[in-house]
Amino acid sequence: MYLKSTRYPVRFISFVTIIIGMLSSPCAMAAGSVSEKLVVYSVNYPLAYFARRIGGEHVDVHLPVPAGEDPAFWMPDSDTITAYQQADLVLLNGAGYAKWVDRVSLPGRRRVNTSASFRDAYIPVEQSVTHQHGPGGDHSHAGTAFTTWLDFSLAAQHAQSINAAMSRARPAMADVFEANYQKLARDLEKLDREMQRVAGQYADRPMLASHPVYQYLARRYKLNIESVTWEPDVMPDPDEWRMLSRKLQAFPADVMLWERQPLPETRE
């Protein structure tokens, strides 16, 4: 009514509206691209957890390892590798974790080795057999211990790498990511202190572990750990019991670490 009665015809108003609409649409599109969720693929749970804590609602974190599979030794199929290839960020643990990463093609630019900053702190794995064939001379397939996050100070460095990578990928969200990372870092610091307090009660006390995966835990918290290779859901055979008895004579441990509850028969 007002438009009709004034000096501006409706056609002119429509024209101005369209022009304003056209001018604002790139801004809206740009805003849309910034608010688009960052698609993050991780190789293990700790990194996925850190990514979720840091990214919050702004990231879409995927850990496509099927239930019951060990992410360290799992091999994804082609479709899953393609999904990793198309992610905005692929979070790798480094230290030789998830060997499949070395056997597939992933985009270098979007791949983040979250332990690269403390590469010098990797623990080499000993007891590997060397072999020789061809002109290359002796070589072994020895690697490094890879459960780095069991040292909570290193876990915080993993988180810091994730924070930096996410901020590079979404600079507009850097402040949000940094604030979330600070909260996570404080939690990890608290856990580190708590772990040091608990581990202090076991200082120099021989401990056994069901798998050789506690190297970083032992180093950080000064624990005296030796390992066997026992599965929690499998009853060890007589040979393994005999080997344990021999080991206990030289290494009198009365505590054993398991990644989950062992069978009741094994415990007894």
């Binding site: 082609s78 590798i81 393609t82 290839q85 056997r103 597939v104 093609s105």
Partner: peptide, 9 residues
């Protein structure tokens, strides 16, 4: 087809 995924592709 698809992008190469494994070594040797």
């Amino acid at each position: 087809g698809r992008m190469m995924t494994l070594l040797g592709e």
